[in-house]
Computed example of a mutant assay.
Amino acid sequence: MEELATVVKSKKNKAELKIVRYSACSKCDKSCSLAGDSHDQDEIVLEVEDKIGVTAGDQVLVEMEKGNLLFATVVVYVIPIFLMIIGYFFGVWMASLFGIAAVELAGIAGTFIFLILSFLINKMFNSYLEKISSFKPRIKRVINRN
């Protein structure tokens, strides 16, 4: 995945980049109630390793490998849903194991417990992936010099 970014600051071997994110409705001139606040633009500021020597004001192309982005997406979005489903059935199983009559309530409790567990797993994955350089965005090339 590639994004266009502007260099905000340039340090020794690091560059602070600003990426402007557009919503699906950002180019729409209509003001409909379905879009809500999505006509707005968001800016993301991130720090990346600068191997090509950029300066403040440069427009650069930032890249993250598609496979790594897909893996991160699965970890963040799919694993919590999967664990919530497992949590429900785990709660139901535990309730039937201990003879608790409120089986549905135990399933719901299991869902919430496993949802919290998924957040902890995501936090551990995030700490682990921050150390791997292939999961970090990198500057591919300079599009426009300042």
Rank of each mutant, 00 (worst) to 15 (best):
V92I: 10
Q41E: 14
R21I: 04
E16V: 13
V92M: 09
A101P: 02
M64Y: 01
L97F: 14
L97G: 00
Y77S: 13
D29S: 15
V60S: 02
F71I: 12
I113N: 03
F125T: 03
L61M: 15
K30N: 14
I108H: 05
N122E: 07
G99Y: 04
T73Y: 06
G107W: 04
Y77N: 09
V45C: 02
D29W: 08
V20R: 09
E43M: 10
L117H: 01
G57H: 07
A95F: 07
I113T: 07
C28Q: 12
E65C: 01
D40K: 15
F135L: 09
L34I: 09
G67I: 05
C28M: 13
R141K: 13
S118A: 15
I139R: 06
F90L: 14
G110Y: 03
D50R: 07
R145H: 12
F135T: 09
G53K: 12
S31V: 12
K12W: 02
I139G: 02
R138Y: 11
N13R: 10
C28T: 07
G36S: 08
L117F: 13
H39A: 05
F71D: 00
L129K: 06
M84S: 09
G57Q: 11
E2F: 11
I139S: 05
E65W: 02
A56T: 11
R141E: 14
M124H: 09
V54T: 12
H39P: 00
F114L: 14
F135D: 04
L115K: 00
Y128Q: 08
V60G: 02
D40I: 06
K12N: 13
L61Y: 04
F125W: 10
S26R: 09
S118F: 07
F98I: 07
A101D: 12
L70V: 07
E63A: 11
H39M: 06
G57F: 09
K11I: 05
N126V: 04
V60M: 08
V7G: 02
P80T: 09
L83G: 01
E130W: 04
C28E: 08
Q41I: 10
F89L: 07
E104T: 09
L70H: 03
S133M: 04
Y77R: 06
K27V: 05
D29P: 14
I113P: 00
K9R: 13
D29E: 14
F125Q: 01
F112Q: 04
A102H: 11
E43F: 13
C32S: 10
D50M: 05
S23A: 15
I116K: 06
V74D: 05
K9C: 03
Y88L: 10
L46Q: 04
R141V: 05
L34A: 12
A15D: 01
R141F: 07
A24R: 13
K131E: 14
V74I: 15
Q59M: 11
E3L: 15
L120F: 15
L117Y: 01
D29M: 11
K136Y: 00
L4M: 13
A106C: 11
R141G: 00
S31R: 14
L115G: 04
V142K: 13
T55K: 15
I121E: 00
A72T: 11
F135G: 08
L70A: 12
S10M: 03
